[in-house]
Write a protein that binds this DNA or RNA. Structure first.
Length: 433
RNA sequence: GUGGCCUUAGCUCAAUCGGCAGAGCAUCGGAUUGUGGCUCCGAAGGUUACGGGUUCGAGACCCGUAGGCCACCCCA
């Protein structure tokens, strides 16, 4: 057993998983480009106060999941548990209110939550985020929900469902929360002991509990959608009209509240149908019209979503999708040599081929030719360039590892020869598909 | 933070009742001094997660710790 292992709740992404990750990142980047969401990168850590104020002191994420950093200075920082607060901070800091509104931003990166790990839940995980700041909606709400759904579709996930709710705004939510608190107070005896303190601290959280007693209780709980103020109700209705126009299917879920305090009005969540385990949330988002103000800026509407990439890969695996493990592409050629001492020539020829734009590996070991060819074939190379006695006449052998054919090629025409063979090969693969 | 199950070679797993720690795959070498995926031969690889206890003797039994998985809490 090695002395060191990856820290609890973290994992190494090994080369075999590389293509799957690269594919998700490419799809996200392409969607961001097509939808006009400009790239942004914010720091992996922020002042702790940004999370405390933005997400809410009473949330689990802040209360027990924050990775607080011990530093030499007096600044108190924490690794980001999500990216929205940081992006809104950047929006305010860089005066993006003066840009053409709304500002559409997208990013992909690591998030950190000190949580108990289990399948699909890690202490360091990856999210794709898209945010639109500065548009009070409702059309933009539909744009984000549709973009969120589009990602799953393009990635190859089927059986994805959406849940939708509106959780009101400062005009109507306090009244609803009061009503909900009273509802739970009257039934305190039925609430599991561990949850009772939430009646006072965070009654909304009791709503989406999966505990049996609460699920039964919640069937009769007042529903926020029925208590929305006129403007919130109007907004929600308009979002639904837009979603219907886009053909986006969803279920109304009156118990969906989302975990963070900054959400207002529209909230949604995507999950994998048929996943009985709990780690089935694939992503979700919502409107956060109060967040900018909480971070000390002018009131600015905003809306966005985050997709958990580990969850998406897990769902692809569960669905036995070939996209869960796309094959690693082999090099166009591997340069092998008959003379174990002459690694210099192998290296030089490989360098020339790479300069011509080809993907080439040189076998720099001292193994005999047969082993070198075996290695080349196994990593999926199309050609082996064999350096041997022919070199004296300025030639090498080019072996087609799939066809098993071989011909003598002058060094001067080597790059062209392999490039042409690669193009034909790609064409052949494309024709098969 | 709470509870349940689990941990033997790089990977997947054996090891009878408590009695010499093994196999397949992978790695490296050879059969083949210049030709691959097959075959054959061989080598290397272990503090049986870690620490303690019981025993003549522990991979196995007991206690603790760490880690993994699962369920809660919560979330992506």
């Amino acid at each position: 057993m090695p002395a060191f292992r990856a820290p609890r709740g973290t994992r190494d992404i090994l080369p075999a998983e590389g293509p799957a990750w690269a594919r998700l990142a490419a799809i996200a980047a392409d969607l961001a480009r097509r939808y006009g969401y400009a790239p942004i990168e914010t720091p992996l850590f922020e002042l702790t106060a940004i999370f405390e104020r933005g997400l809410g002191e009473g949330t689990d994420v802040v209360e027990k999941e924050l990775f607080r950093l011990e530093t030499r200075g007096d600044e108190v920082s924490a690794l980001r548990p999500e990216n929205t607060a940081g992006i809104v901070r950047a929006y305010l800091e860089h005066g993006m209110q003066t840009w053409h509104q709304p500002v559409r931003l997208s990013t992909i990166g690591s998030m950190f939550r000190y949580d108990r790990p289990q399948a699909g839940r890690y202490r360091q995980f990856h999210q794709w985020d898209a945010e639109a700041i500065g548009d009070p909606g409702p059309a933009i709400d539909a744009e984000l929900v549709e973009l969120n759904a589009r990602f799953y579709a393009e990635v190859g996930l089927t059986e994805v469902r959406a849940r939708l709710n509106s959780i009101g705004d400062p005009a109507c939510r306090p009244g609803y929360v009061a009503e909900l608190t009273a509802f739970y107070r009257r039934r305190e005896a039925l609430i599991p002991e561990g949850d009772r303190r939430r009646v006072a601290t965070n009654p909304l959280r009791l709503l989406d509990s999966k505990e049996e007693a609460l699920v039964a209780l919640n069937a009769d709980a007042p529903r926020i959608v029925e208590r929305l103020c006129a403007t919130c109700a109007e907004h929600f209705a308009a979002v639904r009209v837009h979603l219907d126009a886009l053909g986006i299917a969803y279920e109304l879920e009156p118990r969906l509240v989302r975990g963070l305090d900054y959400y207002t009005r529209t909230a949604w969540e995507f999950y994998r149908a048929g996943a009985e385990g709990q780690q089935q949330a694939l992503g979700g988002g919502g409107r956060y019209d109060g967040l900018a103000e909480l971070l000390g800026g002018r009131p600015t509407p905003g809306i966005g979503f985050a997709i958990g990439l580990e969850r998406v890969i897990l769902a692809l695996e569960a669905q036995e999708s070939p996209h869960a493990r796309p094959p690693s592409p082999g090099p166009a050629a591997v340069v092998v040599g008959a003379d174990p001492d002459d690694t210099a020539t192998r290296l030089r020829i490989a360098t020339e081929l790479r300069a011509a734009g080809l993907s080439v590996r040189a076998d720099l070991g001292r193994r005999r030719l047969g082993r070198q060819l075996e290695g080349a074939a196994r990593e999926g190379a199309h050609f082996a360039v064999i350096v041997g006695d022919e070199l004296a006449a300025g030639n090498v052998l080019v072996r087609d590892l799939e066809a098993g054919t071989q011909r003598t090629v002058p060094l001067g025409g080597l790059a062209r020869h392999i490039a042409r063979g690669e193009a034909q090969h790609r064409h052949g693969v494309a024709a098969e598909e």
